[in-house]
Amino acid sequence: MDLSTTYLGLSLKNPIVASASPISERVERVKRLEECGAAAVVMYSLFEEQIVHESLELDYYLNRGTESFPEALSYIPDLPDMGRYSVGPEVYLEQIRLLKEAVSIPVIASLNGVSTGGWIKYAQKMEQAGADAIELNIYYLPVDPELTSSELEAAYVQLVRDVRASVSIPLAVKLSPFFTALPHFARSLAEAGADGLVLFNRFYQPDFDLDTLDVVPNLRLSTSDELRLPLRWISLLYGRVNVDFALTTGVHTAQDVLKAMMAGANVAMMTSALLRHSEGHVQQVLSDMTGWMESYEYESIRQMQGSMSQRAIENPAALERTNYIKVLNSFQEVSGGPLPTMNFSLR
């Protein structure tokens, strides 16, 4: 059975890639991932904002109160060599080196910058450290009403162009689903030099605590249900935008991976499933995939890639708006209850 695929010009033995998560902070866990069959690993993200914030914060707390009181000139000890503090990207870059030494599967670095200079500087350092590719993680929530979508999109495109011009390794861009005209924007990114698009970034949405009336972080792992949003969009974009696609969010089972391939993805990325079931889960999914492919007499992954994209299916409209009414009708049939009033207005 041929499970091989390509992604960003890299030849992969199968389409399962471990997505950015704390697993990549530990070399031994990445080795285990490789042993269990993962075809590549995306490292946790390097956040430029965090680096800047941490170094400012460390400086503030190390020096607060110094030289202000006659009995104590400082409150935190000086280390023999203050340069020993590693608050810059060094730890991250060292981790790239360590991972590259430890495993033979491709290691994709992940970067979230805030300034053009930062994006370029860190991307170059990642390349020098040996990363096989870079995933630009555009994790930014625009809340300024003065900022238009076209301005924001133009800035992203320029960013990809700038980074593209400064490194020679492949570039992927990880996007959120919240773009007004995604196909056009995706094409602009491809033209600016992106080799692949990762759909979609899964934002951790904060929650409200009704007892304390606080906004609280709420980390929930994904479920297979969440697969459908990126599945639909990759189906729609496949063949229309000339880049590789990575499907991320909601990839838990062999079925999820197979669907991703049929939609047109080059790889399927896993995070929640690995955090929940640990690295050995990859082995299980690969085995289930092979079993399914044998049962249905598929020969290779390539054979199915894009086979259920919008261009390939019998009824392309199934992936568009009309589908919505069908779903609501099916809800009525199943539940037998009254439909929400919204549905009435749709008719």
């Binding site: 009995e71 104590a72 000890p77």
Partner: peptide, 22 residues
């Protein structure tokens, strides 16, 4: 020891940095 600038005491917890426990 707060007043004299953060020297470790026997109450300083394991893993914390303090003067004399840099």
């Amino acid at each position: 020891y707060s007043n004299t600038g953060g020297q470790a005491s026997k109450a300083t917890p394991r893993a914390a940095v303090a003067k004399f426990a840099a």
